[in-house]
Design a protein around this nucleic acid. Structure first.
Lengths: 213, 213
DNA sequence: GCGAGGTGTTAGTGGTCGTTAACGTCCGTT
DNA sequence: AACGGACGTTAACGACCACTAACACCTCGC
């Protein structure tokens, strides 16, 4: 696999992408693991495969993570936490409730378009976590949902809490649909900004219909 | 596991639910397999587990299916085919384009609420199929999507095809969100008809916003 | 009554996979 | 120049798992 002629075993080899950002190898592993987990499922991907994706082989991963579960855990805790943090930041920065909802939608769309594998994993492989990690992720997710529910009910005060929560879940499903809509036919897929704009309109359209006829 | 005192090996034992509908054992196996696959993933469920869920043990399943893959294939082909057939039936039965879209939404909601595990599998475990089965399922899915796209573009003629297709995928994500929204807190989840009504409003609200500001 | 077929059972097998063990190389520090 | 730690390697182990083999029971149609 290594490109050096002597093909010795250890060492840094060559810095494949050079100029690695902080935590290079770890981040690289997490990125590839997310991609693989999303496309073939947590149980459908072997550690050898993840290793191969970053240029090392199999058990070398255990120098960076205590186990396969730990990679998934870090991915899910990470995305849940970042979603919540960004959501809170946006609520604090926005003006009235309408602007806040608008900003929340845009923020979530950014995640959905930029981190598709993570968004996929986020509601698909949660059950594969250890109890403590699953509890943490669920707590972060719940806080994020409640944040949205509060804002939705400020914009539409006559909507019951249960209805608002169900609507928020439904809109999440809408916004997270991008992983499924890739590669339709000859290649006539909207580009990023067009897709973001479309999703934004659809989400707000859905919310505006939440309050009965 | 069997409740008879002598606990002999073979035989029909007792008909657990009596009055079995047609293809009792097969259908029962498929139902339980769908539930298990949806909750823990195809690779996360063992054949012993599926067997235990229907009261037989492990390899007894091979009297009904040639393998574990075959169960998943039958489930996915079945749901895809039924979605498409019902969609076509509804388009033929409905009046103008607006009524047709309305009926399509209601029909999809029925599937989403009544066959949650299948809806979950439908866009989650597709890659685990043999090439021929996957091709078939994808073809059925594509035809179903195109059916919706045509109707959406009749209702909103100024919407480009790519936009309409992306919007249809997004609304599918919205309608299929029900599996994720179960068990929120103390139990304040909308009942079936309220949920169906809410999803219906949200979907039509989204579609009405698809055509620009 | 009695084979035949449908439907179970348990025991075993081959393969895959996550993880550990033992070892080697390179680099920065003293 | 020796050395410790970071980072890799290959080999092996133990668990799990889909699937097969061999055998048993129950229910029919004749």
């Amino acid at each position: 696999m290594s490109s050096s002629v002597t093909d010795q075993t250890g060492g840094t080899d060559r810095g494949d992408d050079r100029a690695d950002r902080a935590g290079s190898r770890r981040e690289q592993i997490l990125r590839e693991a997310a991609r693989l987990f999303a496309s073939r499922g947590f149980h459908g991907v072997g550690v050898d495969e993840i290793g191969a994706a970053v240029g090392i082989s199999g058990p070398g991963l255990y120098r960076h993570f205590p186990g396969k579960d730990a990679m998934l855990a870090e991915l899910l805790v990470g995305i849940s936490g970042r979603l919540l943090a960004e959501g809170r930041r946006r609520r604090a920065a926005a003006g009235d409730a309408g602007d806040t909802l608008d900003s929340l939608v845009r923020g979530h769309i950014d995640f959905a378009l930029d981190d598709r594998p993570l968004i996929t994993l986020h509601d698909r492989e949660l059950d594969r976590l250890r109890d403590s990690d699953r509890k943490l992720v669920r707590q972060l997710q719940r806080q994020y949902v409640e944040l949205w529910v509060e804002v939705v009910r400020e914009v539409h005060p006559h909507v019951a809490e249960a209805q608002a929560r169900a609507a928020v879940h439904a809109v999440f499903g809408l916004l997270n649909s991008t992983p499924h809509s890739a590669v339709p036919r000859g290649g006539a897929v909207p580009d990023r900004t067009a897709m973001a704009d479309l999703l934004h309109r659809l989400a707000l359209g859905a919310f505006s219909a939440v309050g009965g006829e």
